[in-house]
């Protein structure tokens, strides 16, 4: 590849212009360079006003998500040479309001995350001196994959349903709901499911499957959502039954 690549960045500065625009930066190319490295180069050497989020630089914190060549990805885990193009387009994650340049507003996601109660709910706690709540390896295996979610919101940017219906709870939050519902230490699955079987929950997902394709941690939110649909349907039917017939 050439010694230089053009980084075509979508800029948005509401205080200067109401519309986003593209700006090209010629960045020296190295084979071991990530997209995030190129953005950092621009910020350090060319335009200090470029705004983007990052922290760990190793695919752990989930803060560096952006649209790279139209696909939502972690910029710290995407090699420039993988893209194989002289001009690399980088923009903010789709489906989210943009605050500035590549920085998007996460409030909606945070609200939805809380909505599914992503924590262990216990009917009663045992005293500390009785030790931890132990689990067998196969019980951990039930939720291990979904517990790897880093809240990077890349699945939301890939999900066309969320783009069309912003009230949809969305892939990551539903995957986390699944993660806690199958955790043997949790007693809150009914309460959690009750929040998912409404108009904006499970049934909004039409199983496009893109969330699982773009997820950088192989969390498979689409699969988790489909697995929630059977218990969700049972609970929805039970609500219609007279109380004496409900389990």
């Amino acid at each position: 590849m050439a010694d230089e690549i053009i980084l075509r960045v979508t800029r948005y500065r509401p205080e200067q212009s109401p519309l986003p625009f593209h700006e090209d930066f010629a960045v020296p190319f190295r084979n071991d360079m990530m997209v995030l490295d190129a953005l950092a180069y621009v910020k350090d050497h060319m335009d200090g006003s470029l705004a983007f989020r990052w922290s760990c630089r190793m695919g752990i914190c989930g803060s560096c998500g952006a649209s790279v060549e139209g696909t939502p990805r972690l910029t710290c885990s995407t090699f420039l040479h993988e893209i194989r193009k002289p001009i690399v387009r980088v923009g903010p994650l789709g489906h989210f309001p943009v605050i500035k340049d590549l920085v998007v507003d996460m409030d909606d996601f945070m609200r939805k995350l809380q909505q599914v109660m992503p924590w262990i709910i216990r009917e009663s706690e045992k005293p500390l001196e009785r030790g931890e709540y132990s689990q067998l390896p196969e019980q951990v295996e039930l939720y291990r994959q979904q517990s790897l979610c880093i809240n990077c919101m890349i699945c939301y940017a890939g999900c066309p349903v969320y783009g069309l219906e912003p009230e949809f709870i969305g892939p990551a939050a539903l995957a986390l709901a699944y993660r806690y519902n199958v955790d043997t230490r949790d007693h809150g699955s009914k309460e959690r499911l009750a929040r998912l079987i409404g108009r904006t929950g499970l049934w909004e997902c039409t199983y496009v499957g893109e969330c699982s394709v773009v997820c950088p941690k192989n969390v498979d939110p689409a699969g988790a959502i489909q697995r929630l649909k059977a218990p969700g349907a049972i609970q929805a039917i039970q609500i219609l039954l007279p109380p004496i017939l409900r389990r």
Binding site: G70, G163, Y207, V208, G209
Partner: peptide, 20 residues
């Protein structure tokens, strides 16, 4: 989202094909 969103990427197209 534009009504042609499903033409944006081959996997969206495949999804639409499955639905059709």
């Amino acid at each position: 989202m534009p009504s042609t969103w499903w033409l944006r990427n081959p996997r969206y197209f495949l999804y639409m094909l499955r639905e059709v």
